[in-house]
Simulated assay, not measured.
Amino acid sequence: MTMTLHGYWRSSASYRVRIGANLKGIDYSQSSYDLRKGEQSGPALGRHAPLGLVPALEVDGESLSQSLAILEWLEESYPTQPLLPADAMSRGIVRAMASTIACDIHPLNNLRVLQALRHDLGVPEDAVKRWIERWIHAGFAALEIMIRDHGKGFCFGETPTIADCCLVPQIYNARRFHVDLTDFPELLAVDARCSEIDAFARAAPERQPDADGAGA
């Protein structure tokens, strides 16, 4: 099986998929699209992700877009090293955690929304910063409760799940935006635990082949 992840080094949605694939020991190549230059809007990515957003996963000529859908496909296709718990209620809780990040926090703060605020609507930078902090804090406050109730070292239980695949990149983003995280000790403890695991470390943006240390 030939697998290519179409993404960008600093895309947190791509970061999620890298973590999931690494945790499962899956080999994949990468194809990069520089979001700063708008490369994701071209036909090269469009044939894999019609919305023109990374990531997309190409597998033997077929393509999947949307990071949560990709992670679910990885879970079904590679059931060893599971990223979802065994029982239905626990799986639902993990999916709720992941969706809090992927559906309620990240979309409001991703590059195209921030560009629209800055360039299309003329929102000043201090207001953009407050916007970013508002949605990260709201989502993290909910996650802090969920992890306190269900976590035992990770977001849920004693092993990494899809929720951890989503949390670590979102904390990375929060730090990039200089968001104060002192109100979220449970989240920070999970992030620290994950940082000790090679699969998470290898997925970090700075370790990707297209990383250049520049902005965005």
Rank of each mutant, 00 (worst) to 15 (best):
A98V: 05
S65W: 10
A86E: 11
I93G: 05
L83Q: 13
R91T: 00
A69K: 11
L108M: 15
S90H: 10
L74S: 04
D104G: 01
A96V: 00
L84Q: 03
R91N: 12
Q66V: 07
S77G: 08
Q81I: 09
Q66N: 05
P82S: 12
A69Q: 03
A86S: 11
S63L: 12
L108P: 09
Q81H: 11
D104F: 13
S90N: 08
L71A: 01
L64T: 09
I105H: 07
S63P: 09
A102S: 15
I105Q: 10
P85V: 08
P79C: 10
H106T: 11
P107S: 05
S90C: 02
G92V: 04
V94T: 00
L64E: 11
E75T: 09
L71S: 00
P79M: 04
R91S: 02
H106I: 06
P107V: 06
S90G: 06
A102D: 13
P85D: 03
L108C: 06
S65T: 09
D87V: 03
A98Q: 01
Q81F: 02
P79N: 07
G92C: 01
L68T: 12
D87A: 08
T100P: 00
S99I: 02
E75H: 00
H106C: 01
A69I: 03
I101F: 09
T80M: 14
G92Y: 07
L74Y: 03
E76F: 10
L84K: 00
I105D: 12
Q81K: 14
P79H: 08
E76V: 07
L64V: 14
I70C: 10
A86V: 15
M89I: 15
S90F: 05
A96D: 01
A88G: 08
A86C: 06
M89H: 15
S99V: 02
S90D: 06
R91A: 04
S77V: 14
E76R: 14
H106R: 13
S77I: 09
I70D: 07
I105G: 15
W73S: 00
Y78K: 15
A98K: 04
L64H: 12
R91Y: 01
W73C: 06
A96Q: 14
S77P: 10
S90T: 01
P85Q: 08
R91K: 15
D87R: 00
E76P: 11
E72Q: 13
I70V: 12
I105N: 04
A86Q: 09
E72L: 12
T80S: 15
S90P: 00
L74E: 07
Q66P: 02
S99A: 12
E75Q: 13
Q66L: 02
W73L: 08
A102N: 13
Q81Y: 12
W73G: 01
D87N: 08
D104A: 14
L108D: 06
A102M: 11
L71Q: 05
L83W: 12
S67N: 02
A86Y: 15
S99F: 00
A88C: 01
T100M: 14
H106N: 13
Q66G: 00
R95D: 04
I101P: 09
T80R: 15
L83R: 09
A69P: 03
L68G: 04
L108G: 12
L64D: 04
I93A: 07
M89Y: 14
S99E: 05
A69G: 13
S99H: 06
